[in-house]
Design a protein around this nucleic acid. Structure first.
Length: 608
DNA sequence: ATATCCTGTCATTAT
DNA sequence: ATATAATGACAGGAT
């Protein structure tokens, strides 16, 4: 029964992988709870395969951040870019990390057989060999002592800056963790890859050699734990970048999945790894605890090789999906905008239409007659205002045939789209009902005139308001200084130009204000998310440190128990401790005074 | 009837 | 000195 269950588990895992590829979550915790350590699901954020965040959820939130409904500045354009960037920052799809851990167990023998870099994890994988266990009675005792009830070790999966920190806690027995992690620390902290360590112990290294290495480990006194971790956090961050590669693991799993579990089923599940294989910029201190170091080599081993094709394929599919989403988003908005624009402006000369875009785009929705959704109207207004704003109008006007625009047919329809909130404006969008001193509108497509339009007409000014506002200053001065206009007309011309430019300036100003508000809101969201992430990192690090401290204490006791004093008795942990020297050596020294005193002295000397 | 939003306009300052 | 941009403040219309 156990064998059948084992094979079924293998198949289930592979099925889970395949389903994960298509975004289907398969919860096998319940099944595996009695077979392996239970999976603990935590909300891992958008990159988690568990959370199932569809891309279309980002459509309205621009990558998680809510967008102000009035957000201007080419919203849909930049939104698409931002969305694409957000998605790309997610990197390759991610899958349940615990599952990857099993795969690491599976591929490790392959790595060894392939002549890959030996790792302590791999070596420890082989140590369950009964012969190895029975090679030494002392060794067997040690393993029995450390195996059954290991401390609770945190398991950390880290992703980069704005993404999610995956944190899982599993209570797993720690088999030989103290030994292996200690040995790994030696090489990692020395800045050398584990597999490249020339003095790396073979899997069947004599047990005393392990202890001799432990004695050379620069960690022996728990009082140094905090400072040690602080000093080594940067190293950990670097190592975290070499996390397990998803594609490689999956590929290897599909190839070597069968049978590997046979020799692993008795082994407790204890691994720390990072699925962010491409994330070398993981958040500081959170990527891996010290206990994770022994397994970095495994991750590195499995990260190389022929998984690139699969990952690239996945990346291509992902990009295509994203582009489809973005294209749909953009095209939908464009379609709605274009249809509205063409409905209201279809009869206008293209030149004038272009000029209209540069003008008060916000008024388009009024002239179109029908209500427009805020987003659509904002998109149109934003794109228009950017070109028609105070910063860009002159060049555009330069392109206008100003003389030719004296034709009222070409220019006055543009006036019809101007919003008129003037104090004395009697005209509404419907046919005017109040008395206007100017003649009532004779044409149906000329619904309303602004106050300045009416004044200009009343004063017989041969220019439209947009012309007056947008014409180059030289041309305007020529008209004003010319002898063709009366003083009243000149004054009105200057007022119209001033008010028109100020209106545009006000529109730009308000748009910028909304942009600033939106940007600040986004910044608040980002900072809040970062704060939460850092808090989670802090918790993970604290738990990891606690676990490592426990391991080191246990190792210290073990070492002292194997040492003998002059009378041949084991050294008592209450009377002796291990201390790391400056040269990397570890010495046994008696506990002469409370540790706090020494710590204080060291801290004082450090400060000095 | 009231609140809120939007828009145009004015006044002021800066460029 | 002049034109223009930027912006706060206000008023009036629209919802």
């Amino acid at each position: 029964m156990q064998v059948a269950k084992k094979y079924f588990t293998e198949g289930l895992i592979q099925l889970t992988i395949l389903l994960s590829l298509i975004g289907v979550r398969v919860d096998i915790d319940s099944y595996l709870s009695g077979y392996y350590s239970p999976l603990i699901e935590i909300n891992l954020g958008p990159s988690s395969a568990y959370t199932q965040t569809p891309f279309h959820n980002l459509r309205d939130t621009l990558g998680g951040y809510t967008v102000h409904p009035k957000c201007p500045e080419l919203d849909y354009f930049f939104a698409s870019r931002r969305l694409l960037e957000e998605v790309r920052t997610l990197g390759s799809p991610r899958f349940p990390t615990q599952l990857n851990a099993w795969l690491v167990h599976q591929v490790s023998p392959v790595d060894k057989s392939d002549g890959g870099q030996p790792s302590t994890s791999s070596s420890t994988d082989t140590e369950p060999d009964p012969e190895s266990y029975q090679a030494s009675d002392d060794r067997n005792q040690e393993l029995q002592r450390t195996s059954p009830s290991g401390p609770c070790v945190s398991r950390v999966v880290t992703e980069d800056d704005d993404d999610v920190v995956k944190e899982e806690e599993e209570s797993a027995p720690v088999t030989q963790l103290a030994l292996s992690s200690t040995l790994e620390q030696e090489s990692v902290l020395d800045g050398t890859a584990l597999g490249e360590s020339p003095h790396h112990p073979p899997p069947t290294t004599d047990f005393d050699q392990h202890w001799s290495r432990f004695l050379s480990m620069p960690v022996a006194n728990l009082d140094d734990l905090d400072s040690l971790v602080t000093d080594r956090l940067s190293d950990l961050d670097i190592d975290s970048g070499g996390g397990i590669s998803l594609d490689a693991t999956l590929l290897d799993a599909m190839v070597t999945g069968g049978g590997a579990f046979d020799t692993r089923q008795q082994r407790p599940l204890f691994r720390q790894e990072s699925t962010g294989s491409a994330r070398s910029d993981a958040s500081p201190g959170m990527a891996l605890g010290l206990a994770a170091l022994p397994f970095a080599s495994v991750c590195n081993l499995s990260s190389g090789g022929g998984g690139g094709s699969l990952q690239s394929a996945l990346g291509d599919c992902l990009d295509e999906a994203v582009f489809d989403q973005i294209n749909q988003l953009g095209l939908e908005g464009l379609e709605s905008i274009d249809s509205q624009l063409m409905d209201s402006l279809g009869s206008i000369n293209p030149d004038v239409l272009e000029d209209l875009d540069s003008d008060s785009g916000l008024s388009l929705e009024s002239s179109s007659g029908g209500p427009i959704s805020p987003g659509s109207s904002e998109m149109s207004s934003s794109s228009c205002e950017d070109e028609g704003g105070a910063t860009g109008y002159s060049s555009e006007v330069d392109s206008l045939p100003s003389k030719g625009l004296l034709d009222g047919v070409a220019t006055w329809p543009r006036e019809s789209v101007w919003h008129d909130h003037s104090y004395s404006s009697p005209a509404a969008f419907n046919p005017p009902t109040k008395g206007i001193k100017e003649e009532p509108l004779s044409e149906d497509d000329e619904p309303s005139l602004s106050r300045d339009e009416l004044r200009a007409r009343a004063m017989r000014i041969p220019f439209s308001v947009p012309q007056i506002v947008h014409m180059p200053v030289e041309e305007f001065l020529e008209i004003v200084d010319g002898r063709g206009l009366s003083a009243e007309q000149v004054t009105l011309l200057r007022d119209i130009r001033r008010r028109g430019k100020n209106k545009l300036a006000a529109q730009n100003c308000r748009k910028r204000k909304l942009d600033a508000i939106t940007g600040l809101q986004d910044e608040v969201d980002r900072l809040r998310a970062r704060r939460e992430r850092l808090l989670r990192d802090k918790q993970v690090t604290a738990k990891t440190m606690g676990a490592v401290g426990q391991q080191i204490r246990q190792l210290t006791r073990d070492v002292l128990a194997r040492l003998r004093d002059e009378s041949g008795r084991p050294l008592s942990p209450e009377r002796f401790t291990l201390r790391c020297g400056a040269d990397g050596g570890v010495v046994v020294e008696p506990v002469s005074a409370p540790n706090g005193d020494k710590t204080d002295k060291r801290k004082k000397s450090k400060k000095q």
